[in-house]
Amino acid sequence: MPDKNHPMLELRGVSKTFNPGTPNEKLALDGIDLTLKSGDFATIVGSNGAGKSTLFNAIGGSFLVDSGSVWLDGEDITYEKEYRRSRSIGRLFQDPMRGTAPHMTIEENLTLVYMHASKGGGIFGRVSRKDREMFREKLALLGMGLEDRMKQPVGLLSGGQRQALTLMMATLITPKLLLLDEHTAALDPATAEKVLELTREIVSERSITCLMITHNMHSALVLGNRTLMMDGGRIVLDVADEERESLTVDDLLERFRAGAGKQLDNDRILLS
């Protein structure tokens, strides 16, 4: 078991301004300090433009932050390139099309991700029968019948199937950190529920340190062990464990108002 108090992710005074010096200048992250312990599963809610996705981009390395530093598992990754960070950070986006290559088969997608993450076989390595068996078993766990469609291009799958596959690919080799950016928001309610259930299973089973952006206030309180609320590039509320268990959605909105000094304003927010 990983040490529960070991800090897995640390952000120290992270700031980012977009379009500095222009009329469109926007302070997207305003001195964020955040520590996630190993095995923490935190949900993030916030208004439109609060900086939730920007926070993920800063952690994932889509851009370099203006100031502050990002630490992963005791290592300073502030200047690490995006593709290098993704060796230990798994990431899912709202758009189910982003995580998989549509013209490649399910098996090829899995092979690619697996061989890169495991560094197996060298650059000329090819998929082995044993790998294929392992893929089949893992696909069966998704309960979507994908294990019998391994030779089909991923482009033929539905959004929910693609997202479930992406989740499986991102966790094929257990990542140090998993970033979920509203990964069920583009799915129909039943599929979204299914993918969320899979997420819960995988994350808790392997105690993956995880950050999840959601616009569903209920999920935000029920999933994981910690809830963060963001506004104007800052974290305005951070509740965990026992304190969080006693909270209702109404309490959460009230606390947000107290912390941010305004109503939570998100046109997609779901209160139930």
């Binding site: 593709y83 290098r84 993704s86 060796r87 982003r98 290559a101 013209h103 997608n109 991102a170």
Partner: peptide
């Protein structure tokens, strides 16, 4: 496979630790 994925979905490639 990495080369094929690069032409197919560059977002995915970056997220899969491929340069």
């Amino acid at each position: 496979l990495s080369i094929r994925a690069t032409g197919d979905n560059r977002d995915m490639v970056r997220a899969s630790s491929i340069n």
